[in-house]
Simulated assay, not measured.
Amino acid sequence: MAVRGQSSAAASLLLPPVTALLFLWMLGCGHVMAHNDLGNMTALQKHVSYFDRNKDGIITQEETFEGSVAIGFTVEYATEFAALVHGANGPITSPADAPLPHLSIYIENMQRGMHGSDTGAFDLKGRFVPQKFEEIFMKHAKTRPDGLTHSEVEDMILANRDPLDPGSWEGPEIEWGGIYKLASDNDGFLHKDDARGIYDGSVFVKLEEKRASPRSVM
């Protein structure tokens, strides 16, 4: 999910042990229904729609928390991640008549949450750009052509940093770093199909299904 801002726990990309911390945000009650037509969504909208657990077109903080835990983040990490995401994207995606404090994310306006220092695989309207995605692997997959190591992910993130927009640097670190920790294989590679799934949200579904499997050891 697109994020802006900085947090010591999230930026470290460390997933601390599960704690007894309870998630207390209950801001989704009484909100209006929003447009949520998956077939007509951009890739960016699909990217975040996984976290829309009740599929009403509006993502609340508790839904982001629930989805984050479902894919493998700890309670502590998921709590802080939800706060970062909604603090940054809620106000700019909420319509003027949305209930205050405008912390829910409206999927139909998700393009407003685009941040800099990214790979360019989303265009300005949030549509997927295949050529830019392929460039990630052509430029940075140096060990094997269909996977990225941790250092190659870090090199990719650094190569895309906008020196004039330091406020955008943490978003890719949190997004790519978090998914690398959850989706990389036992040999330390983030496979190309899983990286592609970041852009349309399908990797989140895959991770949740994997954790729900009786054979899962996570």
Rank of each mutant, 00 (worst) to 15 (best):
Glu66Trp: 14
Pro130Glu: 07
His31Val: 15
Lys46Phe: 09
Ala78Val: 00
Ile59His: 04
Phe51His: 00
Thr79Asn: 15
Thr74His: 07
Ser117Ile: 10
Leu148Asp: 06
Ala98Asn: 07
Lys46Ala: 04
Gln131Gly: 07
Glu62Leu: 15
Asn109Ala: 11
Leu84Lys: 06
Phe133Ala: 05
Asn89His: 12
Phe65Leu: 00
Glu66Gln: 13
Glu62Tyr: 15
Leu44Val: 04
Leu148Thr: 03
Ala34Leu: 10
Asp52Glu: 00
Ala70Lys: 08
Ile105Tyr: 10
Pro99Glu: 15
Glu66Cys: 10
Asp56Tyr: 08
Lys132Asp: 10
Thr93Ile: 09
Gln61Leu: 10
Ala88Ser: 13
Phe122Cys: 10
Ser49Trp: 06
Ile71Thr: 03
Thr93Phe: 10
Ala121Val: 02
Ala43His: 07
Met110Gln: 12
Phe51Thr: 00
Asp97Ile: 05
Glu62Arg: 14
Gln45Ser: 04
Arg144Pro: 02
Leu103Ala: 11
Thr64Ser: 13
Ile59Leu: 12
Asp56Asn: 13
Leu38Val: 15
Ala70Ser: 07
Thr60Asn: 07
Ile136Ser: 14
Gly126Tyr: 05
Ala43Thr: 02
His31Glu: 13
Met138Asn: 13
Gly126Met: 03
Glu135Ile: 05
Ile107His: 07
Phe137Leu: 06
Thr119Asp: 05
His47Ser: 02
Leu100Trp: 07
Glu76His: 09
Ile107Tyr: 10
Ala34Glu: 08
Gly120Asp: 01
Ala82Phe: 03
Ala98Ile: 04
Asn36Val: 12
Lys46Arg: 14
Asn36Asp: 12
His35Glu: 12
Ala83Leu: 14
Tyr106Asp: 09
Ile136Asn: 13
Tyr77Ala: 01
Phe137Tyr: 12
Pro95Arg: 01
Ala34Thr: 00
Lys55Gln: 13
Ala83Cys: 11
Met110Asp: 06
Gly39Phe: 04
Met138His: 15
Glu66Ala: 15
Ala121Leu: 04
Gly120Pro: 02
Ala121Cys: 12
Phe51Ala: 01
Leu124Glu: 08
Leu103Asp: 14
Val32Phe: 14
Ser68Arg: 02
Ile59Tyr: 09
His86Glu: 02
Phe133Ser: 05
Gly113Ser: 15
Glu66Thr: 08
Val129Gln: 03
Pro101Met: 04
Ala98His: 09
Glu76Asn: 08
Ile107Gln: 06
Arg112Gln: 10
Asn89Leu: 15
Thr93Tyr: 15
Gln131Tyr: 06
Ile136Gly: 15
Val32Ala: 14
Thr119Val: 03
Asn54Ser: 01
His86Tyr: 06
Asp97Asn: 14
Ile107Trp: 11
Phe51Arg: 00
Leu148His: 07
